[in-house]
Simulated scan of single mutants.
Amino acid sequence: MKENQIVDSSFSAIINAPIRQIDIPEWCFSLPEKEYQGCSPAHIAAGFTTAADGKRMSINVESIGGSLMVQHYIETLGQKDHLILDSDSDVFTPNGRTTIHVTWELSVKPIDEHRCEFTNRVQSFATDEMIAFLARQGIPFDLFRAQRQPASIAHNQGETPLFAASIERAARRNN
């Protein structure tokens, strides 16, 4: 899928809490909707459920670059300091509905005994459905990628410090 990659962006922020108090999956799968909304003006709604196979799932609704996205993030790695989620997300554009594959990776590593570095990495890939959707409109994939990247990268950059602050608050409650 690398040839269909749209974005690979990663940003980091400091969490003022010891790593032993941080549990990213617990934070993610119990994040109140208002807390999620407070992490970006583009965040509309969030919830959690399970996939058909019983894996935990985070449902996020947000608007990025003028497109409404419904993300169905399924946990593929769930460690206290490292969470990887994959989603075949629905994208609602002015020209119709399509899908995009998104991998969301959150991790922390200790800086010292009182602080951690949080990293928020988002990778997105065009699905076959999206490639066909773009082709029907006469939009070259490279043009779409070039136009999509700035909005996606800016979104990730803006939400990263706010996610870090939210994880920090959760860690303090875990103390």
Score class of each variant (00 low, 15 high):
residue 1 M to E: 09
residue 2 K to L: 09
residue 3 E to Y: 05
residue 4 N to A: 12
residue 5 Q to F: 09
residue 7 V to A: 11
residue 7 V to G: 04
residue 8 D to V: 07
residue 11 F to I: 07
residue 11 F to A: 04
residue 14 I to R: 11
residue 15 I to C: 12
residue 17 A to G: 02
residue 17 A to P: 01
residue 19 I to S: 09
residue 19 I to R: 08
residue 20 R to G: 10
residue 24 I to C: 10
residue 25 P to G: 02
residue 25 P to C: 01
residue 27 W to H: 04
residue 36 Y to Q: 01
residue 38 G to K: 02
residue 39 C to Y: 08
residue 40 S to D: 03
residue 42 A to K: 00
residue 42 A to R: 02
residue 44 I to Y: 10
residue 44 I to G: 05
residue 45 A to V: 02
residue 45 A to Q: 07
residue 47 G to E: 00
residue 51 A to L: 08
residue 53 D to T: 11
residue 53 D to A: 10
residue 53 D to F: 09
residue 55 K to R: 15
residue 55 K to Y: 11
residue 55 K to Q: 15
residue 56 R to S: 07
residue 57 M to T: 00
residue 57 M to Q: 08
residue 59 I to K: 10
residue 59 I to L: 10
residue 59 I to M: 08
residue 60 N to M: 06
residue 62 E to Y: 10
residue 63 S to D: 05
residue 63 S to L: 03
residue 65 G to L: 05
residue 66 G to D: 00
residue 66 G to T: 04
residue 67 S to T: 03
residue 67 S to N: 07
residue 67 S to Q: 05
residue 69 M to H: 15
residue 71 Q to Y: 05
residue 71 Q to C: 10
residue 71 Q to L: 10
residue 76 T to K: 13
residue 77 L to I: 13
residue 77 L to E: 14
residue 80 K to F: 08
residue 81 D to Q: 09
residue 85 L to E: 11
residue 86 D to G: 01
residue 86 D to Q: 06
residue 86 D to T: 03
residue 88 D to K: 15
residue 88 D to E: 15
residue 89 S to L: 12
residue 89 S to E: 13
residue 90 D to M: 05
residue 91 V to H: 13
residue 93 T to Q: 15
residue 93 T to W: 14
residue 94 P to I: 12
residue 96 G to L: 05
residue 96 G to S: 10
residue 97 R to Q: 06
residue 98 T to C: 07
residue 99 T to S: 10
residue 100 I to K: 13
residue 100 I to P: 04
residue 102 V to N: 09
residue 103 T to R: 14
residue 105 E to I: 14
residue 107 S to G: 13
residue 108 V to I: 09
residue 110 P to L: 06
residue 110 P to D: 12
residue 111 I to N: 06
residue 112 D to T: 03
residue 113 E to N: 15
residue 113 E to K: 15
residue 114 H to I: 06
residue 116 C to R: 14
residue 120 N to I: 14
residue 120 N to Y: 15
residue 124 S to A: 14
residue 125 F to I: 01
residue 125 F to N: 04
residue 128 D to H: 07
residue 129 E to C: 03
residue 129 E to H: 05
residue 130 M to F: 02
residue 131 I to E: 02
residue 133 F to S: 10
residue 133 F to D: 09
residue 135 A to R: 14
residue 137 Q to W: 00
residue 138 G to H: 04
residue 138 G to I: 05
residue 142 D to C: 14
residue 144 F to M: 02
residue 144 F to I: 02
residue 146 A to P: 01
residue 147 Q to T: 01
residue 148 R to F: 03
residue 148 R to C: 07
residue 149 Q to T: 10
residue 150 P to Q: 03
residue 154 A to E: 05
residue 157 Q to P: 00
residue 158 G to N: 08
residue 158 G to Q: 11
residue 158 G to P: 00
residue 160 T to S: 02
residue 161 P to W: 07
residue 161 P to G: 05
residue 162 L to P: 01
residue 162 L to H: 07
residue 164 A to M: 06
residue 164 A to N: 05
residue 165 A to R: 03
residue 166 S to C: 12
residue 167 I to R: 12
residue 169 R to C: 00
residue 171 A to W: 04
residue 172 R to Q: 14
residue 172 R to I: 06
residue 175 N to V: 03
